[in-house]
């Protein structure tokens, strides 16, 4: 349907430093970026406040399509003018437009706090969560479209089935070789370092932003995609499962449409609303797979 051309980093950033150090450095950097963003936002907000709020309306250009309603079978953009308030998110604006102007405006949303993963949208040409995107961070008018590379069901709602299929194809469930007897009320032990290692990967909220941003996934429908590979990473790196399972998991992600398809463009990492270092995880699995194969020689 409607897609902008992805900005992408073409520089191939391959094998680098030790991953643990990398993780915490990456984390620090993320926090630093966040702080910078917050500072920028403060300035912007001050500027916004100087404008008269009552006169201040955001213009939204929203993608509309409904295959069974007359006048909407052909995709089009509708314009809404929504009164702006301090702290307004894209989701707030969409809700306002729906509840005050057109109750047929359709989009998924639920938690409003970036954890349910329902409202990944293509906002001003980039995959973002509507609830987590502040209006003041965007250029106005704001253009809101469904996620590219997925079939549109209606308006901003895309069909997520393919995404779910890919997620479920990597055997996304904990499957240890043995667990302590249930009756002993004994947990499996896990090092803090190991928990730390999988921590970022467990934060995925299945929003689909990464998959939608990925050029490879757009061209190869069978490619597992960043989210599913990250899910595989979450288990492959979990020491509680044991070595044999790890081998099995590496076999899954090494298939034809697995990790080797990734061309390290970093688009997934850039758009991930949970700051998961997806590309790094994919690269690390490639390294693990190579090491694993060497073992058999």
């Amino acid at each position: 349907m409607s897609t902008g051309i992805q900005e992408s980093e073409t520089e191939a950033d391959t094998e680098e430093q030790d991953t643990a150090a990398e993780e915490s450095a990456a984390q620090r950097q993320r926090m630093e970026t966040k702080r910078q963003r917050a500072a920028e936002r403060d300035l912007q907000e001050k500027a916004e406040e100087e404008l008269d709020d009552s006169e201040n309306a955001v213009e939204l250009k929203v993608f509309r399509y409904d295959p069974e309603v007359e006048g909407k079978e052909e995709p089009r953009f509708d314009t809404f003018h929504v009164p702006f308030f301090k702290g307004m998110t894209v989701l707030d604006a969409l809700i306002y437009a729906r509840d005050h102007f057109d109750s047929s405006l359709t989009f998924r949303h639920s938690c409003r706090q970036a954890i349910c993963g329902s409202d990944a949208l293509f906002i001003n040409g980039r995959q973002r969560l509507g609830c987590k995107t502040q209006m003041v961070d965007l250029d106005w008018p704001v253009r809101i479209e469904p996620l590219p590379h997925q079939d549109v069901v209606k308006d901003l709602v895309v069909d997520m089935e393919h995404f779910y299929d890919q997620m479920e194809s990597v055997e996304p469930y904990f499957d240890p070789e043995e667990t302590p007897k249930k009756s002993d009320l004994e947990e499996q032990r896990q090092d803090r370092e190991n928990r730390e290692k999988i921590k970022m990967s467990t934060r995925c909220i299945w929003c689909g932003a990464c998959m939608s941003s990925c050029n490879i996934a757009a061209g190869d429908n069978e490619y597992l995609g960043p989210a599913a590979i990250n899910k595989a990473y979450r288990f492959a790196m979990d020491e509680r499962e044991g070595e044999n399972m790890k081998q099995h998991r590496l076999n899954i992600i090494e298939q034809e449409h697995g990790v080797w398809r990734c061309q390290t463009q970093f688009s997934c990492t850039e758009v991930c609303p949970k700051d998961i270092p997806l590309t790094e995880h994919i690269q690390e699995l490639k390294r693990e797979a190579v090491k694993n194969n060497l073992k058999f020689w």
Binding site: P176, P180, K182, E186, R189, Q190, R195, D238
Partner: peptide, 18 residues
């Protein structure tokens, strides 16, 4: 304990327990 056996990534103590 069930959840832990299903792989839930609990925060851990130094000895690896939940």
């Amino acid at each position: 304990i069930n959840l832990e056996h299903w792989g839930m990534p609990f925060s851990r103590e130094d000895d690896g327990r939940v």
